[in-house]
Simulated scan of single mutants.
Amino acid sequence: MESPHIVFVYGTLRQGESNHHYLRESEYLGRFETTSDYALYDLGEYPGLIKGHQTVVGEVYRITAEVLNQLDILEDIPNEYRREKIDTPYGSAWIYLYQQSIQHDEEIVSGDWCQRV
C-alpha cells in the first residue's frame, strides 16, 4: 500500500473554494496557521504564497500520491510553484510556494485567502 502524503492548502483548494474538488476524496485533518515565515498575495484567480513575515491560514489533508500528482499539475510544478515541507500538528506537510514576480499584486494581510474580500 502506498504511503499517504500530507498537504497544507491555503487558497483555491480550501473548503468552499473553486478547486476544492481535487480533495473531495481526501481526509481533512484540520485547520492550521503557519509560523510567521510567509506572505500571501492575491493574484486574482488564486493566491501566491512566498517567504515573508506573516502567518498563513489553511487546511491540512491526507492525500494519495495520485492526488499529489494532480495538485502538482494544477500548481504548474516546477514552473509557477515549487513544493517544500513544513511542520504541522498533523505531521510534515507539503506546501506550495509561488516562484514568479509578485511586485504588482496585493498582499493579503490577514493571511487568510477566504477572508480576502
Rank of each mutant, 00 (worst) to 15 (best):
I108A: 01
T55G: 08
D87S: 14
H104L: 08
Y61H: 11
H104N: 11
Q99T: 14
T88D: 08
E45P: 09
D112F: 14
H53A: 09
D42I: 06
V7C: 12
G11A: 09
R31W: 04
D112I: 12
Y10R: 08
R62N: 09
G91T: 14
H5C: 04
H5K: 01
V9N: 13
R31Y: 06
E45Y: 10
G11D: 14
I86F: 03
Y96F: 09
P78G: 02
Y61V: 02
R31D: 12
F32D: 09
G11F: 09
E27V: 15
L74N: 09
L68H: 02
I50F: 04
L13H: 04
Q100V: 02
D72K: 07
Q15G: 06
Y81R: 00
D112R: 01
H5T: 00
R82Q: 07
C114I: 05
L29M: 05
I86N: 07
H104A: 08
E17K: 00
E84Y: 11
W113R: 01
T34R: 00
I102E: 05
L74M: 15
G11N: 15
F8H: 13
S101E: 13
W113A: 06
V56I: 00
I102S: 04
S110G: 13
Y10C: 12
S26F: 08
T35L: 13
I95W: 02
F32T: 12
R83W: 08
D37M: 03
E84R: 09
A39T: 05
V117T: 00
Y98G: 01
I50W: 06
Q99H: 08
L23D: 11
P47G: 07
T88N: 03
R82I: 03
I73H: 13
Y61I: 04
P78W: 03
V109K: 09
V56K: 00
G91C: 12
T35F: 03
M1A: 14
W113T: 02
F32L: 01
I77G: 02
R24P: 12
A39Q: 08
E2Y: 07
L43D: 12
D87L: 15
L71E: 09
V57T: 05
L13N: 03
Y38M: 05
S92T: 14
Q103N: 06
D42Y: 14
E2T: 00
D42G: 09
G44D: 13
Y28R: 10
P89Y: 01
G48C: 11
D37A: 08
P78Y: 03
E84G: 10
E25N: 14
E59R: 00
E17F: 06
D105Q: 05
L74I: 11
Q100H: 14
L13K: 00
Q15D: 11
T55C: 10
E27M: 15
Y96W: 04
A39D: 09
I50R: 11
N79R: 02
H21M: 14
Q70R: 10
I73D: 13
W113E: 03
I50D: 07
Q99R: 14
Y61P: 10
H21A: 14
S3D: 10
L49N: 11
A65W: 06
W94S: 05
F8I: 05
F32M: 02
W113P: 03
Y81A: 07
Y46K: 10
C114Y: 08
E107N: 00
G48R: 12
R24L: 15
V60G: 04
D76L: 07
L29W: 02
E59P: 10
F8C: 07
R82H: 08
I102H: 15
E80Q: 05
E2I: 00
Y46L: 09
